[in-house]
Design a protein around this nucleic acid. Structure first.
Length: 316
DNA sequence: AGCGGTCAAGTTGAT
DNA sequence: ATCAACTTGACCGCT
């Protein structure tokens, strides 16, 4: 099992830069491209730092932020990589990232954000979603990322119809983007049971989020969902997510993320699985390192350690 | 240098 | 009706 860091660092001075459309639109086009070029080049350098940090700390995966190329698909600020003055430098730097990630075995992935809704009834939403998926797939190819993971989208009162629409839109993706696509269960609409049929039929891996599953349950146990999700990866290393509730499972809003991962929230069966586990926790790399240390201990002495921890917790 | 308002986008559910 | 939440605060203009 390897653990993964998502996007940002809490303490490490590794920063990705973004901008706003408002700021960019105040500039003439050449100045726009100059600014965006600088940000892309900076972010490519930051990605190298992030990969180096992961490799040095035995963190086996890293999720790249969606704004890696800021405003890439914006209707008026958008651009092609080849439009940027520093395109050659950026491409070269991305190749450095790809080689470094490969040689140090740091798995890279993308997770387009909430605006990417492939099953929306609104054509313009689907269009912008497709554009965003193509952008992230282009970046993924250049750095060697193997996953672009999204949610099912909205329900619009009828999940079956909505998921059918998702499926109908799949052929509109390029082969490159289609190959990288994975589906994740969410905490409001689509459970693993909802997604597994389309995952199997379309050969889309299920990125199983156990925290979401606990927030929005279906008939499946965690063990059943785990086994079913692993199957959808068809021999590839599965990518799963975990987080812990901010105020515990008994308080309202358990879907809110805690700073760290409570080891008790890690399904015990996962310890021996060859999976990538992205850590969604506010304390970022600190949470990853803390869970990583706990996992290593637990793997050394599986039964005693977890029992001892449970007992210690009971004693307080 | 520090501070506060603002930021491209969708959908849901809590208040 | 408004707004926070989501993978995440950072940017920018003003003082």
């Amino acid at each position: 099992m390897r653990v993964g860091l998502c996007c940002q660092f809490a303490e490490q001075a590794i920063k990705f830069r973004i901008t706003t459309a408002t700021a960019v639109l105040k500039l003439a086009r050449p100045a726009q491209l100059q600014k965006l070029s600088e940000l892309c080049l900076h972010n490519a350098g930051a990605l190298q730092q992030a990969i180096e940090w992961c490799a040095a700390n035995e963190v086996g995966a890293y999720r790249v932020m969606s704004q890696f190329w800021p405003l890439k698909t914006h209707p008026t600020c958008g651009y092609q990589l080849s439009d940027l003055p520093a395109a050659a430098n950026i491409t070269a730097q991305l190749a450095v990232c790809r080689n470094m990630a490969a040689s140090s075995n740091v798995r890279l992935s993308f997770h387009p954000d909430q605006f990417v809704v492939l099953n929306s009834p609104r054509a313009e939403v689907v269009e912008s979603s497709l554009a965003e998926l193509e952008y992230q797939a282009e970046a993924a190819e250049l750095i060697g990322a193997d996953v672009v993971n999204i949610h099912g989208g909205g329900a619009y009162g009828d999940k079956v119809t909505a998921l059918a629409r998702f499926r109908e839109n799949l052929p509109r993706l390029s082969p490159r983007a289609r190959k990288l696509l994975t589906l994740e269960n969410d905490d409001k609409v689509y459970t693993p049971s909802d997604l597994l049929p389309i995952c199997r039929a379309e050969h889309i891996p299920l990125c199983y989020d156990v925290h979401h599953h606990r927030c929005l349950a279906d008939g499946l146990t965690i063990e059943e969902a785990t086994a079913a999700a692993v199957q959808t990866w068809q021999g590839r290393e599965p990518l799963f997510h975990i987080s812990s509730p901010l105020q515990g499972w008994e308080k309202p809003q358990p879907q809110l993320h805690h700073d760290y991962i409570e080891p008790g929230d890690l399904p015990p069966g996962w310890l021996q699985l060859p999976i990538t586990l992205d850590i969604e926790a506010k304390a970022k790399e600190l949470a990853v390192l803390r869970l990583q240390a706990w996992i290593k201990k637990a793997q050394k002495e599986p039964p005693r350690n977890s029992r001892a921890l449970a007992a210690a917790k009971k004693r307080g």
